[in-house]
Amino acid sequence: MKLLRFSTLVVVGLTLALGATARAATIDTAARQALLLDMTTGTVLFEKNADQKMPTSSMSKIMTMYMVFEAIKQGRLSMDDTLPVSQRAWKMQGSKMFTELGNRIKVEDLIRGVIIQSGNDASVVLAEGLSGSEEKFAEDMTARAKALGLANSNFMNATGWPHENHYSTARDLSVLAQRLIEEFPEYYHFYSEKEFTYHGIKQGNRNPLLYRDIGVDGMKTGHTEIAGYGLTASAKRGDRRLVLVVNGLNSMQARADESARLLEWGFREFDAYALYKAGQPVEEAPVWMGRDATVPATVAKDLTVTMSREERKGLKVTAKFDKPVPAPVAKGTQIGRLVIEAPNFSTREIPLIAARDVPQLGIFGRIAAATRYMVSGSVD
């Protein structure tokens, strides 16, 4: 049987950057490493040395908190559990929660001690409580990170304390931040709390963007001499959420100002647009030997696009079917693909699926259709 190729232009006038890197708008940064991600579509709006391994200092504690939240969700730990403070935890230097040697501290307090106060001592208490030792916890962190797809991350401790084999990348941290926000929404509120008092000592959240009215509701700062000043931040405006990772800045002020500038740019220069809803017909696909001549093609999930406000023109979206779809057609079966092309964007292909069932013709109908094809060479 001769097979025909069908391609139908279905949309013009939008620019797509779904799960890709948007390159239309440009900006630079003083940070050594940076990545700005639109979580709505998984689109990278900006990156600089995003896959360069770097010391992550206290931004490593995002992974520590991922492990803690996962343990709570799995029932291996609870907010009301208490964990003992070892001498190792008590003696930790740097930022501290000021735990007391030998005391037992509620997990919920330890979480605030890590997230708000960036407590190295609290991080070690949680690590030892979950894995028996900080060394074992670091091994567990690395293994879990690999399972999450953080291919360029390795953890030697729970705090981000400098170590030549303790590193991550801006891209890995952005993925980790997204996973934590999506998987543990019931615990994410800790990151927006601006202060916490423990042992009579009140400390403010070290995230400087929480104190600016720009939509930031988390996540974690970091600083060591070798790493410079870093920040993983997340901001939400309307239905959009951006995740930003910067590292290698030369001061606290530069970290705050540069992070705010990049987030503002991301919200200003780009937007997310709904293209198709799941189940909405995109195009009619031709059917061979079916009771219906065509079947509506649709997308399996809502299709939202992130695009530069200056690059909304020039998009070409094409529904492609390599051949008539043979009946019977089952709803949900992939029957084609949606090809999205635009200047300065990588071509994307989205599966098109059948929106409904199409039964096969009866025996006499199939004979008639085959006869028409032999006479005319067409499946119509």
Rank of each mutant, 00 (worst) to 15 (best):
M97P: 02
M97G: 08
M97T: 12
M97K: 03
F98Q: 02
F98V: 01
F98E: 05
T99L: 15
E100M: 09
E100Q: 13
E100D: 10
E100I: 13
E100W: 14
E100L: 12
L101P: 00
L101H: 11
G102Q: 03
N103F: 15
I105D: 01
I105E: 03
K106R: 15
K106I: 00
K106Q: 11
K106G: 07
K106D: 00
V107K: 00
E108I: 13
E108D: 14
E108M: 10
D109G: 04
D109H: 15
D109E: 15
L110Y: 00
L110V: 05
L110E: 00
I111Q: 02
G113T: 13
V114N: 07
I115Q: 06
I115Y: 07
I116C: 02
S118C: 05
S118L: 02
G119I: 09
G119R: 08
N120Y: 13
D121S: 12
D121M: 08
D121Q: 08
A122K: 08
A122C: 09
S123K: 01
V124K: 09
V124S: 11
V125L: 07
V125K: 01
L126M: 05
L126N: 03
L126V: 04
E128T: 10
E128P: 09
G129F: 09
G129K: 00
G129H: 03
L130G: 08
L130D: 11
L130I: 13
S131G: 12
S131R: 11
S131F: 11
G132N: 14
S133G: 04
S133M: 09
E134D: 14
E135I: 10
E135M: 13
K136I: 09
F137P: 06
F137H: 07
F137K: 05
F137G: 06
F137A: 05
E139N: 09
D140S: 09
D140Y: 06
M141R: 04
M141N: 03
T142W: 09
T142R: 06
T142E: 07
A143V: 03
R144T: 13
R144L: 04
R144C: 06
A145D: 07
A145W: 06
K146N: 10
A147V: 05
L148H: 09
L148I: 13
L148C: 07
G149E: 12
G149D: 11
L150W: 11
L150E: 08
L150V: 13
A151G: 07
A151H: 12
A151R: 10
N152H: 15
N152G: 08
N152V: 11
N152A: 15
